[in-house]
């Protein structure tokens, strides 16, 4: 967080300054929606390594970071992109080949962990997952946890309700707070100081943003300060949390950005195909390394495809898009 100032910067600069090797990162969005993809590709381009990634159901963005070998530790609830990949392919490969260490939580637990981080408390309780292997089986070994000063010593804790049977509850599960070094989100509208307006579902973006030491915002539209402040009820994140603001139209592409564009089914289908093949995936990574900016990806995809995914004004997505 940085209280004041003009936070507008370049994507290359924001990633270089804040996303260091070994840093603890969380990205916004959900499966095939509003993942900060331009930033994900920039991280891949800068060949950042050993990231500790916190994901709930980040889908495409998480899979591409894992596929590029940028991630060594992953705390996750769900690695899938719906119809395109019931299980994200590079995620699956990396876990099966034991290339990354994984800790499994549920979506609610991951969200509560970010909320705890954003509130400055060490944990929050819930009633989920009692009696399951999410509680019994730990992905990170206790020694590993002890060696790492920036992760908690336990995956979670089951506790008798200290208020006896209050609220008809005998036991609760405590999940530890997450304070990522960096959170990156992509939003529809932001201003130079980092006020944010998200259209449609916020997923866990707000909690992730407020839990982070450093917040990078990429946005479809960069607006005048007055514009967002004229309708404050519609803004979710005030500027005091933000460190960097980057204006990148189509910054969530190939995932969707409500009211702006849909996900690109052609891209996501092709990605799922080439992710299955080692050689093809390597040349896919080369194509990311060879691009200088997100703009070059959009140029490569072409105006026709971007026109096809353009959101209808009323619906907020491309109603006529062929998704077969």
């Amino acid at each position: 967080m940085k209280v004041n100032g003009n936070k507008i910067t370049s994507l290359e600069g924001a990633v270089k300054t804040h996303v260091k090797d070994g840093c603890h990162l969380s990205i916004g969005g959900f499966t095939i929606n509003r993942n900060p993809m331009a930033a994900v590709y920039e991280i891949i381009r800068q060949k950042t390594k050993n990231l500790h990634l916190y994901a709930h159901s980040n889908g495409q963005g998480a899979d591409e970071l894992i596929g590029a070998g940028a991630v060594s530790c992953l705390e996750i609830a769900y690695g899938g992109t719906g119809k395109f990949a019931a299980t994200c392919i590079r995620f699956r490969k990396a876990v099966e080949e034991e290339k990354i260490q994984v800790e499994d939580y549920t979506n609610y637990q991951m969200t509560l962990r970010f909320l705890a981080g954003s509130m400055g408390v060490p944990f929050l309780p819930s009633r989920t997952s009692l009696g399951t292997d999410i509680i019994e089986k730990w992905g990170f070994a206790p020694e590993f946890r002890n060696q790492q000063p920036n992760i908690p010593n336990k995956k979670l804790v089951v506790l008798e309700n200290p208020f006896d049977d209050w609220c008809d509850t005998k036991k609760i599960v405590l999940v530890p707070a997450i304070n990522p070094d960096v959170t990156i989100i992509h939003v529809q509208k932001a201003d130079y100081r980092g006020n944010c307006r998200i259209d449609g579902l916020t997923f866990a973006d707000v909690e992730q943003a407020k839990a982070a030491r450093t917040l990078i915002i990429t946005c479809e539209e960069l607006l005048d300060d007055d514009y967002l402040k004229n309708q404050p009820d519609r803004n979710q994140i005030p500027f005091i949390h933000a460190d960097a603001v980057v204006h990148i139209p189509y910054g969530a592409y190939p995932t969707a950005c409500y009211k702006y564009y849909d996900y690109d089914p052609v891209f996501l289908k092709q990605y799922a195909e080439l992710a299955k093949n080692e050689e093809k995936y390597q040349s896919y990574l080369e194509s990311i390394y060879n691009r200088k900016s997100h703009r070059e990806l959009l140029d490569f995809v072409g105006r026709g495809r971007l026109e096809m995914i353009k959101a209808d004004k009323n619906r907020g997505y491309a109603a006529k898009l062929d998704r077969r």
Binding site: A77, D104, N107, I134
Partner: peptide
Amino acid sequence: PDVRFSGSGGACD
């Protein structure tokens, strides 16, 4: 694991 699946997501919740 021999095979890794997506994980809980919200299913366990």
